[in-house]
Computed example of a mutant assay.
Amino acid sequence: MQKKIDEIIRIGKWIWEKDLSGGASGNLSLRVDDETILITGRGTCLGALKAEDVCTIRMDGDPLVKGFVPSSEKLFHTSVYQHLDAKAVVHVHPTFCNGYFAVHDRISFDTFETRLVLGDVPVVDQKTPTITDIMPVIEALKNSNIVVLKHHGVVAIGETLNDAFFLAQTLEEAVKIACIKDLYVRVDRPAAPASGGNAAVSPAGGTFELFSKEQIVEIVRLVNQDAQFRQLALQTNLETKLAVVLDETQTAYCFHFSGGGIKDFTDKVGDAEFVISGKSDYWRAIFKRQLDPFAATTQKKLKLKGDFAKISRWYVPFNRLFDLWTSAPVA
């Protein structure tokens, strides 16, 4: 237990040093077991935490130590652990994020690295000083390990406090880049010319059962008739085998990418160079484009076997591939 308390104190100092929260704002927690969590106390400064500022509470919010007053966000933290697989929660109030999202409802990232880590960050409106409308935030966290609370702050979850902290820090740095870019631009950027290659491909009609052979056949058809994918695949010399696996049933498909398209596919992992596996909820969100597949791997919602640096070379054609997936809608 002391090790977990020390971890909370360490991350609190990092948050303070990186200006992610000031004064007595922000709160941290760690899952202890299915019944209890460790959480910071109300009115504590994350940059000056002591062991007595951290205490164990039950999932109903009651502290195990008499007299300890947990963070006012205690019920949000316990709700996260009751509904999600998270082991750590970071809630901070970053200056640039709060300022940026006070006037924006979304952010487009200007570096590939940031998009790989964060994906599409959900923004959930808040109307109270503490998170009282909890379930919309929980729902958003199912598809992204980091969520912006408009007019409030940022929450991030992870397997460790390190993971959650790095997400919050990465988002704050990305917002700083967006603000600096706006200062340089000063004027609205001219609208990009329309491109027929970016048009969405119409679905054949109806929906498909997740990971059914019919869905996969439709995906292959869409990819092989898409001129934009072919061009991007040839430009980046896309030659590989990629397998996808549904955890619950172990249903697997391996796609052989060659010659600007999908040459063939099999219903087993086989000799795939890359294997991506995950639960049905995450795959369904990906096929609906509610979850970025690259970010899903960096946030550990999906598991990737293979060289991430190598698959990143083909980020552009695979991103087009994922766009096409939405045209084979799942039920």
Rank of each mutant, 00 (worst) to 15 (best):
M1C: 06
K4M: 08
I5K: 10
I8Y: 04
W16A: 05
E17N: 15
K18R: 13
S21T: 13
G22Y: 05
G23M: 07
R31T: 05
D34I: 13
E35K: 15
E35Y: 14
T36Y: 12
L38N: 02
G47R: 08
D53R: 03
V54R: 03
T56G: 03
I57P: 00
R58D: 00
R58M: 02
D60L: 00
G61V: 00
L64D: 01
F68H: 02
H77K: 01
T78F: 00
S79F: 01
Y81V: 00
Q82W: 13
A88E: 06
V89Y: 08
V89H: 05
V90L: 09
G99Y: 08
V103F: 15
R106N: 14
L116S: 07
L116A: 12
L118G: 05
G119K: 03
D120Q: 09
V121A: 09
K127E: 12
T128C: 05
I131S: 03
T132N: 12
T132I: 09
D133V: 08
D133G: 08
I138K: 09
I146E: 05
A156I: 07
G158D: 03
T160R: 07
L161V: 06
D163G: 06
F165V: 01
L167P: 06
E172T: 02
E173L: 11
K181R: 13
Y184A: 09
P190R: 11
A192R: 14
G196M: 07
P203E: 01
A204E: 09
A204M: 05
L210P: 02
L210W: 08
E218R: 10
A227N: 10
Q228C: 02
L232E: 02
Q235G: 11
N237L: 13
T240F: 13
A243Y: 11
V245E: 07
Q250M: 11
S258I: 00
G260L: 01
K268C: 05
D271T: 02
E273H: 13
V275N: 03
S280E: 15
I286P: 02
P293M: 09
T298Q: 13
K305M: 10
G306K: 07
D307R: 11
D307M: 07
I311G: 05
S312K: 10
R313V: 05
V316W: 06
F318E: 01
R320T: 08
L321A: 02
T326C: 13
V330L: 10
